[in-house]
Design a protein around this nucleic acid. Structure first.
Lengths: 346, 346
DNA sequence: TTGAAAGCGCTAACAT
DNA sequence: ATGTTAGCGCTTTCAA
């Protein structure tokens, strides 16, 4: 039973020490993983601690040990539902390892990211995970200088010397292209994300490679910047003009693919996949919802998170560790939004 | 220009002091908001700081000032898209005020929440925001005892003495009922969320009040526990059995309403809203997507966040401040998933 | 206004 | 194994 501490605000290790009849450092040792204390003292200390409701102060510990148990997470937006999912999983995985996530929202502007990284560093974080954001080499230098490891999540465009975990976007884009071509599509269009994002660049290059391998060229291209409204406008534009519209659209991510589907089916009154096939990228939860039933390239969120956490902890525990760059495969999840080629395997 | 600091790990106020030719405390004063320093010293210090790339250590500052500038956020899940939205806005709003959000994922079990709250307290947070989670009175006592204010976000079932920001769920539920009744529906069913959630309870009570006022009773009721799969099963169950199925369903939140729509339109082949009207609660982004076009009660996320931040900062700055409980109105957002009563106003 | 000195709560040598 | 001591980097009296 925790004792009644009416007016007490903080219980310190010193108070516990007094109650247990030991020195303050003995208390510290009992609560420090790698320390040594006799079973007898440990018991006395634990009892006293329980009675007083004592718990070590993480911040004080951080001051002297240099470990804050805090991981800074930089993220630009949470409206692409790939990120909430990632955040939840990341937070859970780190929590299980004794770390916690301090969230920093950043706009894509360089200035904003600059300022945000400085703020993160102010908190003496043990590491930084940058999701959906690119870090200039200047910034990663700054972190390196501060001894804070950085892992890029779902981006690869950090400077050299920075770890990253992402998907093999090129291969994913290529697979989308092959699938559409095998499905008999001839007029394949692409809706791009934010042009500077490594994900966007890889996916488009993969698609173009597949098209090229079959002697095809892109039938149309629009830019959605990973935003729904812009993706809608881009989709409309694909069907305007004199020539025939596309018979298939590969969209750089699911979030924009939903917008594309809404335009194609709703505004244009076309049938999916009979008139137009649509493929997205990410496999966020709504892609599986019946109203969208989106064929897409799955990003293996669980594995990405595992890798990110592994790399991060390795970098923290082994200061000299080489940065690692991981690219995971992206299986095609076949649903109803794209025509299925006869005899398609894997 | 920041000086080249090749092997330097940390720049301390002492180093800045030496370079500026002043005392360490002078440096501290320059970087402490309410402190006094002559313009001359301030300038010298700022220059030295800039040259060295110095920034105050938030943790060290926290140790002595008792302010960590960290707000702990407890959240149970991020798959209901109301929460990522809230998290993003909360984080932005707090960031603008010099605070940052430390995320703690918690399962709904009492033990888990207990443990999580202790962990939060370990970080010496300045306040705790509990979103989508209820706190036992024991726990809120623990926080109160530790001098850490708590604000419940989208829940009202904390113990007395805890601030909360939520919607007027009863009124929202009532409004949904009135709208459906005015639309000529006679067989109105309800799909409940997690039975213990204050949101769930309020919304259902409101609906029942509206029905009662018109001499109607609930035509059916299922429990979805705020989860899609369970909501689907509950929806199917509503249409099984001998009697006629419902002609309208009020679902406790949008997340489950999407599942209900998928079942009603997809599996059962019914038309919405011709055969069945569906109303949700929250107005999360996908509710506005064309494929769902869900009529729903809007939770004013922006205002909720503003209020939460205001209350939190007030509690932090004024230790004796009375807890506040805010309930915001929930306007009905009329879209296409529910029949619109002729001449419906507001 | 400014510097010197005393801690905040804790860990990590260093002795014993 | 345990107590003593010295800080971690900073804010805040207290004198000057």
């Amino acid at each position: 039973m925790a004792m009644r501490r009416d007016a007490s605000e903080k219980v310190t290790s010193l108070q516990v020490a007094k109650r247990a009849g030991v020195s303050q450092s003995a208390v510290s040792r009992v609560f420090t993983p790698g320390a040594s204390a006799s079973p007898a003292t440990a018991e006395k200390v634990r009892n006293a601690a329980r009675e007083l409701g004592y718990r070590p102060n993480v911040l004080a510990r951080a001051m002297v040990s240099g470990r804050s148990q805090i991981i800074g997470l930089v993220v630009a937006y949470l409206d692409n539902y790939f990120y909430p999912e990632a955040l939840e999983k990341l937070s859970n995985a780190l929590q299980a390892r004794g770390y916690h996530v301090l969230v920093f929202m950043a706009r894509q502007t360089a200035e904003c990211i600059d300022e945000v990284v400085e703020e993160i560093l102010d908190y003496q974080v043990d590491g930084i995970i940058a999701a959906s954001v690119a870090l200039s080499s200047q910034l990663s230098d700054r972190c390196h200088e501060a001894g804070v490891p950085v892992v890029l999540f779902n981006r690869t465009d950090g400077a050299e010397g920075v770890s990253s975990v992402a998907s093999d976007n090129f291969e994913g884009g290529r697979l989308a292209g092959e699938f559409l071509i095998a499905g008999g599509h001839q007029r394949i269009a692409y809706i791009a994300g934010w042009e500077k994002a490594s994900t966007q660049v890889g996916r488009e290059a993969g698609l173009r490679a597949a098209l090229g391998a079959h002697g095809l060229a892109l039938h149309g291209r629009g830019v959605g910047n990973f935003r729904m409204e812009e993706a809608k406008a881009a989709t409309r534009a694909l069907f305007e003009g004199p020539g025939p519209g596309p018979d298939a659209i590969f969209v750089a991510n699911d979030h924009m693919a939903f917008a594309a589907l809404d335009v194609v089916r709703g505004e244009l009154g076309l049938r999916v996949p009979e008139d137009v096939s649509v493929i997205g990228f990410d496999d966020v939860p709504p892609a599986a919802w019946a109203a969208y039933d989106l064929t897409t390239l799955r990003q293996r969120a669980n594995r990405m998170v595992e890798q990110t956490v592994d790399i991060m902890l390795e970098q923290i525990d082994t200061p000299g560790a080489q940065p690692r760059n991981v690219a995971l495969d992206t299986p095609l999840v076949i649903r109803g939004s794209a025509r299925i080629p006869k005899g398609w395997t894997s």
